[in-house]
Design a protein around this nucleic acid. Structure first.
Lengths: 150, 150
DNA sequence: ATGGGTGCAAACTGTTTGCAATCTG
DNA sequence: CAGATTGCAAACAGTTTGCACCCAT
């Protein structure tokens, strides 16, 4: 599901009774241009679209993000920055985050065993797992160094 | 750190140049009365305090929560419900969450190996880990059953 | 007594919603 | 052409902040 042409997106939307609009296509194409691990807030996305000369309102950005999360095209991340971030929902969800609580710098890392542990635990609690996010909060090397400098 | 008497809290605060106020003591005592795994939003906490006949403003609740997270007494959770939740920051952080994306029901579970994996990964990226949260999103048994009933 | 803490109300941020106009299937 | 989708502006929810008063230290 990571790469979806405009026409594939249209099919996917139509199959579920939704319509393909230029806004939706443009939103998805922005996400497909990101490098692995990059993620955007609603406002980041809106800015990128405007820079590209697209005319799209913030409300539509939000509505589109919700729709695409609902359809499974995007993944919603809750990093502790007060607003949500979104990224393409790649089939292998073995990619997690470390956030620096000082500077908010975020690093992605891949780790297969976490998803397995999660899957096992959740299903024994009767849950059908949709997503598995391991988030580590800490202080990055840079900030640690700066603290010691004081 | 899970159980802190009023006077221990006072010492802890004074040592860092803060003052012990009735509001802060009451907030912490509310958290200490919770059963393991319970967590509160700022508003939940405010309501509980008012039920107990305490006079405390919402702003003070927020300020106190931030302070206690900063001091390491509380842990901030980002469950996908649009607002943050807080719980006592117990020394063993091997306790994670599964959230049902339909009904928001949250279940806690303990899993030791995740923290180990996280610690290892983060430190190799140069991060000093403060917290490690594994959050699983899925559909609970109840909601699955209801979906099939339709 | 001094400066940290509180309550209040007003400001803010990110997000959602109602509605008329517009576009897709 | 019907109904889904959009843009706009207004409404919202949760959280933060300025300021005068108050109370731990």
């Amino acid at each position: 599901m990571p790469f979806l042409s405009d026409s594939a997106l249209k099919d996917e939307l139509n199959a579920r009774g939704y319509r393909a609009t230029p806004q939706r296509q443009k939103v998805l194409s922005i996400f497909m241009e990101l490098t692995q691990g990059e993620h955007l807030s609603a406002e980041d996305l809106h800015n990128l679209l405007e820079e590209d000369g697209e005319r799209i309102s913030l409300s539509t950005v939000y509505r589109t993000l919700h729709l695409m999360v609902y359809m499974g095209l995007l993944r919603e991340l809750e990093l502790a920055e007060g607003h949500k971030h979104y990224e393409l929902n790649r089939p292998l969800k073995d990619h997690h985050h470390i956030v620096c609580v000082h500077c908010n710098k975020t690093v992605e890392f891949a780790e297969r065993s976490v998803a397995k542990i999660g899957e096992k635990t959740a299903s024994s609690a009767g849950y059908h797992v949709l997503d598995c996010q391991l988030t580590l909060y800490g202080i990055c090397a840079n900030c640690t160094a700066q603290q010691q400098a004081r």
